[in-house]
Amino acid sequence: MNYTLHQLQVFLKITQTQSITKAAEELHLSQPAVSIQLRNLQNQFEIPLTELVGRRLYITDFGKEIAIAAEKILNEVYAINHKTLAYKGQVTGRLKISAVSTGKYIVPYLLADFLKLHQGIELVLDVTNKAKVVETLEQNEVDFSLVSVLPDKPQVEQEPLMENKLFLVANGEVDVKGKAFNMQIFETLPMIYREGGSGTRFITERFIQSHNLPVRKKLELTSNEAVKQAVIAGLGYSIMPLIGIKNELQQGDLQIIPVEGFPIKSQWSLVWPKNKSFSLPASSFLDYIKKEKERIVQEKFGWINKY
């Protein structure tokens, strides 16, 4: 057997994504390069690792066994690398974080300087919706999660970071200058929603229900970016987190509609399961956030106070 660590890494990613195309994207390789690595690995086994049915790739039972072994081997290699760096006095290991989708506008700034200080840390970051973030917490798959709404389950501890403000927004062509609206405005507006399971959707629905607002839902879209483009195109209005529309507000593509009772407020927090045992990278990151969060928020997000 002459398989390489790179071949194992590529094959493991193929089994995780069930796709050569997706594996190539996540590994930042070309599709032909991934196919070559898979073929070279397959040539060392008499039993098929994968099979193609129609256009869909399937992992054989034997391939699944090899993937399990490959993951163990790669984890051992990571451990060796981390131990080597640890003997040099560096904080090493994996730091796993999940973040709700709108958190992508925040989490890079929380991590940038920390990772520069500790170059031996390997970051695993998953940006997804609120429901999946809660699932990663429940399964203890991550060290921390960035959320704008605290989950009911599991029980978590938190480090508050900054205020989350949500406003009713329209495209830049709507004439609202000098006007102020009460909540009855929602009777006439075609509203664009985030998908079920998102934190923005949860906050929006909680506000609407608590004020018994008569809302007309026109569209439901699966990302903050999709909602922004739909509003800019004039397809409707939406309640959106301020953190994700800075550029569009400055460029005049979007505008805030002044409505009584707004903005809706929640809080961005870093959370983790109660009584969680931290790895060295995780405890170092939490210490860093506690010391540096006020500086980061002021430097990177001070503009929020203008709204």
Rank of each mutant, 00 (worst) to 15 (best):
residue 36 I to D: 07
residue 45 F to H: 04
residue 69 A to M: 13
residue 67 A to F: 07
residue 54 G to K: 12
residue 29 L to N: 04
residue 37 Q to M: 13
residue 41 L to T: 01
residue 39 R to K: 15
residue 56 R to I: 10
residue 38 L to K: 11
residue 41 L to M: 11
residue 50 T to N: 00
residue 31 Q to H: 06
residue 65 E to D: 11
residue 26 E to V: 14
residue 29 L to D: 00
residue 56 R to G: 03
residue 37 Q to N: 12
residue 58 Y to F: 15
residue 33 A to S: 15
residue 71 E to P: 02
residue 38 L to N: 03
residue 32 P to W: 08
residue 42 Q to K: 05
residue 50 T to L: 15
residue 47 I to F: 03
residue 63 G to R: 04
residue 43 N to E: 14
residue 42 Q to A: 09
residue 60 T to F: 11
residue 29 L to A: 07
residue 41 L to F: 03
residue 53 V to P: 00
residue 47 I to D: 07
residue 30 S to F: 07
residue 38 L to M: 12
residue 36 I to H: 07
residue 45 F to S: 00
residue 33 A to D: 06
residue 59 I to K: 06
residue 37 Q to Y: 14
residue 62 F to M: 07
residue 51 E to Q: 13
residue 52 L to G: 01
residue 55 R to E: 10
residue 27 L to N: 09
residue 40 N to K: 13
residue 44 Q to V: 06
residue 48 P to L: 07
residue 65 E to G: 02
residue 34 V to W: 03
residue 50 T to C: 10
residue 26 E to R: 10
residue 28 H to N: 14
residue 58 Y to C: 05
residue 56 R to L: 05
residue 54 G to S: 08
residue 51 E to T: 13
residue 57 L to H: 06
residue 71 E to T: 02
residue 70 A to L: 06
residue 48 P to R: 08
residue 33 A to Q: 11
residue 44 Q to G: 01
residue 38 L to G: 04
residue 58 Y to L: 15
residue 50 T to Q: 05
residue 63 G to F: 11
residue 58 Y to W: 15
residue 56 R to N: 14
residue 68 I to A: 13
residue 49 L to H: 01
residue 34 V to A: 10
residue 27 L to M: 11
residue 60 T to R: 11
residue 70 A to D: 05
residue 60 T to M: 09
residue 40 N to A: 02
residue 42 Q to G: 04
residue 53 V to M: 08
residue 33 A to T: 15
residue 35 S to N: 12
residue 65 E to M: 11
residue 60 T to I: 10
residue 32 P to V: 01
residue 63 G to W: 06
residue 55 R to I: 08
residue 67 A to L: 09
residue 49 L to C: 03
residue 27 L to E: 08
residue 36 I to F: 11
residue 58 Y to T: 08
residue 46 E to M: 06
residue 60 T to S: 10
residue 57 L to G: 01
residue 40 N to W: 04
residue 51 E to K: 12
residue 61 D to G: 13
residue 59 I to P: 00
residue 43 N to P: 00
residue 66 I to A: 04
residue 32 P to M: 06
residue 51 E to Y: 14
residue 59 I to N: 00
residue 45 F to T: 00
residue 28 H to M: 11
residue 57 L to D: 06
residue 58 Y to P: 01
residue 50 T to Y: 09
residue 31 Q to I: 14
residue 47 I to T: 13
residue 61 D to M: 05
residue 47 I to Q: 14
residue 27 L to P: 08
residue 66 I to P: 07
residue 48 P to H: 03
residue 51 E to P: 00
